[in-house]
Design a protein around this nucleic acid. Sequence first.
DNA 1: TATTGTTATACTCTATAACTATA
DNA 2: TATAGTTATAGAGTATAACAATA
Lengths: 163, 163
Amino acid sequence: MTKRKVAAGSRRKRHDNGSAVVKFGPLADWVGFNLRVAQEAAFQAFSKLSREIGEHPGRFAILTLIAENPGISQTTLSNAAGRDKSSMTPVLEDLVRRGLVQRRKTDSDRRTYRLSLAPAGTRTLAKLNVCARTHEDNLDRAVGPRDRARFLRTLRRIAAALN
Amino acid sequence: MTKRKVAAGSRRKRHDNGSAVVKFGPLADWVGFNLRVAQEAAFQAFSKLSREIGEHPGRFAILTLIAENPGISQTTLSNAAGRDKSSMTPVLEDLVRRGLVQRRKTDSDRRTYRLSLAPAGTRTLAKLNVCARTHEDNLDRAVGPRDRARFLRTLRRIAAALN
DNA sequence: TATTGTTATACTCTATAACTATA
DNA sequence: TATAGTTATAGAGTATAACAATA
């Protein structure tokens, strides 16, 4: 497509069907920009895998956090996930409605819910873990086994430094 | 840990004001998860800097791409930014309205616009570049000068592999 | 017929503030 | 007074499909 016989036209972008060569300039060397592009690509890839099993990609972190911290409250969960508690309400509502998460009131403080995984939630999380494993294998291939530990350490340092 | 000896209360999370210690389990070792957390922290930090000069963080990439490719069309720009062309319409509308970007029709193909920076756009981009420089300095400090090149290479490999 | 850019529309994700019920 | 969770609402940011003008 757009072959053009080599430079018959005088313009750099004869037809410009949207696939013209674009210069990224200094953008190409900024860590921030490359971080965003890499994360977007990775998230898209994981989204695709999780949609194949009929699950939202964002549910993976939530279900894992509940599994690892049975009895956790919604507020604590929100903070761990880095979101406001009000953002969690519809998510939990969905997970409870679909029988993946159990909510029970405590006696000691009847304002809070204690969250835990229902059996269906454990099964869904297992399926999401398969997705994550596949995804991680793809990432590891891109990162390379030698650099993985160092790469992880760098990512953690970035998160720690900019918070 | 697991000190308990103090243990006046019988529960691990007496009041739970949302700051309880949370276990991240396997999440903590997934590259995908750490990539997301790092990118979110970095994006938040850049957002703060750009909001301080009254600009949306997302405008930085757009203005840079236009500056580096004067005469670029909206469709080409959209593809370079990885978004649908319809997503670009309100963004460009805003930039043109504020006098940062110039749009002119071409003679050769009167369907397309040719985009370029107006003087005000060049000035705004310069200010955004100062933000980006500051941001990049913070990132570089977290990454470390030795690892920077390797880190960038890894990010690019991830983006290339998962697309 | 195909493409550029716009419109109409809708969906996701997120936050802020006000509210309730408890504490 | 303060906190847990909900509600109402709004704002980004994005996409899909249909469209008018042009190729």
